[in-house]
Simulated scan of single mutants.
Amino acid sequence: MEQEITPVMSDEITSCNCCNSEDIVSILRAPDFEMASIRIFHCKNCAALCPDYPEIVEDEISRQTSFHEDFWRDETPETLSELVAGMEAVVDFYKEIIKAPGDGTIAYDVGAGRGNLLTALLTKGYDAYGCEPSAELSQQARAVFDLSGDRLVTTSALDFLSRRSDEKGNVDIVFLWHVIEHFENPMEILREVVSTLAPDGVLICQGPMLSPGYVYPAHRFFHSESNIDWIARELGLKVIFMDGFTKERFVSFALAKEEHPSPAIDTVFLTSPEDAVGSLYYTLSKALAEN
């Protein structure tokens, strides 16, 4: 009989959940989703913001899949179908920087969740494939949207990319939509994602910014503009789009190789704690003013 393993929690985080640097500093306290006071650590290497939830020593993929299965348990086929129209609008929004659908235009949805974005990409005419580690969510998506097992694979991001290694260097679009902040090893996965991109391919991401409703253990870190700048440079990419001034407090960004025709946009990289706090205040003020 196997002995049940009880998760062990550390006293506090000791390294960045984005880049693994130990050069982190407590920068502020913020309310979490239950309005409890949580310390937020700023990484002086990559400028990620990491909530001080004690580290849980267990399989991270299992923890994340369980969380999202519970989070979306009450959704119906009708509500899922309604969300596809919204995701089609997302695809349309990026049409100026992504390759048009057609023969051989390959798109990936890494961390497909309930299949809304993957379905939208297929509806728009892309040769789209996705992965989702939750068997429950991927089975639901296949049933609701009539997705084949080849289109949506129940597996991890790294395994999915390995299975499709014959397309390496030829993928036109990769979506990581509310996914990066959940990864235990984000930079390892992002490097594998970049290796799949065609010279004019685009990596499109969205994730939550630091805001009380999003501060809970499943969100391992939060982007800032400086963090996105660091990720791009670390991957050898340029930032060709970024917008964080939304009422939802989401930040969206697109990264591409130098060969992509879109020019790089100006971004800032602030590593000192004082500058990072000022940047957060400015971003929040802009979001409130514009919404």
Rank of each mutant, 00 (worst) to 15 (best):
R142Y: 04
G130F: 06
Y94D: 00
A128T: 06
V84N: 06
T79S: 15
F71H: 15
M87F: 09
L117M: 15
P133I: 02
Y108S: 08
C131S: 15
A143W: 01
P101I: 12
D146G: 09
A128W: 05
T123S: 11
P77F: 02
P77E: 04
S66T: 11
G111V: 12
A143P: 00
T79E: 15
D146S: 15
E82N: 07
E136L: 14
K124F: 03
S66A: 14
A128L: 09
D92Q: 12
V90T: 08
G104C: 07
F93I: 00
Q140P: 00
E69I: 02
P101T: 11
T105I: 11
E78Y: 06
G130M: 11
W72R: 01
I98T: 14
L122Y: 00
F145R: 08
V144H: 06
G125N: 10
P101W: 12
T123H: 10
F67N: 12
D146A: 15
V91F: 04
F67K: 12
L118S: 02
A128M: 07
L80Y: 05
L147R: 12
A135V: 04
P77G: 07
G111N: 08
T79W: 06
T119A: 12
E88N: 02
G125S: 13
R114T: 09
F71D: 07
Y129E: 03
